[in-house]
Structures are given as structure tokens and as C-alpha cells.
Amino acid sequence: MAKKYAMIHDNNLCIGCQACSIACRAENKIPNEVYRIQVWIQGPNQHADGSLNYDFHRQSCVHCENPPCVKVCPTKASYINQDGIVLIDKKKCVGCLYCVEACPYKARYVDPVTQAPDKCTFCYESRLSRGEQPACVTVCPTDALIFGDLNNPSDKISQVISRKITYQQKEHLGTRPKMFIVPNTQGGKIR
């Protein structure tokens, strides 16, 4: 059965330490000046009760089920594979950068070496194919990232998604991202 790979980014557990970013760089040999993933620490934001906290935004490909980048690619170099992962076939890419502009999540950049667009692949080529979790998930010190197959009800990700409140970025665009965010409830919450 085909898989439906997805990821959870838990804002309550994320500490913005960038371990994910470095692990991604090491595993996928990302050139220095670009990033497949960053965690933006936003804030401090003020809650209604006056307390302050930070939000953590994982900036990377969200692997839409209905990806604009795939839709606009003139040569089908951008495609969504059988496991629901959005990938780029660099051989087919002409470098029109339509996908770069069309991505509402600014997930794509132009690789300075290949001159083709690049982005997070959930480590499809570097780790998933070997049965390993994506690099960022493997190292995340506080388990803020969960990766798995939504088609498998016993997978941890399926269980967490059915248990915790999550949202997807820019849902109104109908892109159906497979990056689920657990919103931040730290700060301002008197327990």
C-alpha cells in the first residue's frame, strides 16, 4: 500500500535550537548559503494576560497533497511521488523557477551548484530509502518532530494527530500540506 508520509512540528516542544537545520545540511550536503530548513523564532509575542512567549516556525517544504509547484511545472520535473513526497527530477528541470515563485511557503530555493530549484524532500533520497527517519527528526533534541505514514493508523504520527490539536499553514489555499503544526500553548498558561 502506498504511504502517505507526513510530519508534525510541535511548537510546545520546539526550542529553536537549529539541530534540524545542521543535520539536514550534513546529510543532504546543502551548500552553505542556502537552507532546506530553518526554524524561525518569532516574538516575543504577548498573550492576553500580558505574558510573553516565542513561537517557532519551521520554514521548509510542507509537502502539499495539492502542491502548486507540481501544478505549474512545465516539464513535470516537480512531481509528487507514490508516497506523497514532493520531489524534483533535476534532469527534467529547465530552471524556469515557476515552482519557486508559485510556492506559497517559500520552501524552494535555487541550488547554487546545480542551478535547479531544491527543497526539503523528507530526506527521501538520503535516508528514507534506507529505512531511516529524516535527518531533522533523527536529531531533534526535544522530539518536537514526528514523522510517519498517515495511511498507517498505528503509526505514532496518526495517533498524535488524532490526539493533539494541529493546524496546517495557509490551509485556505487548498494545498493540503502534510506538515501538521501543534500550536504553541506555552507562556501565559497558568497551570
Binding site: 501544478k71 505549474v72 511545472c73 512545465p74 516539464t75 513535470k76 520535473a77 527534467k92 528541470c93 529547465v94 530552471g95 524556469c96 523557477l97 515557476y98 535555487v110 542551478q115 535547479a116
Partner: peptide, 21 residues
């Protein structure tokens, strides 16, 4: 194009959801 030598692929591969194609 960032890969202009590949431009001929535009004439070979088509994607009908792509306005560019």
C-alpha cells in the same frame, strides 16, 4: 532560464496544468 541548455525539454515534456506548458 537557470538551465538554458535544457530548454528543449520544454518542447518534449508537457504538463497541461501548467500555464507555462
Amino acid at each position: 532560464l537557470t538551465r538554458p541548455l535544457n530548454f528543449w525539454r520544454l518542447l518534449v515534456h508537457y504538463n497541461f496544468t501548467s500555464v507555462m506548458s
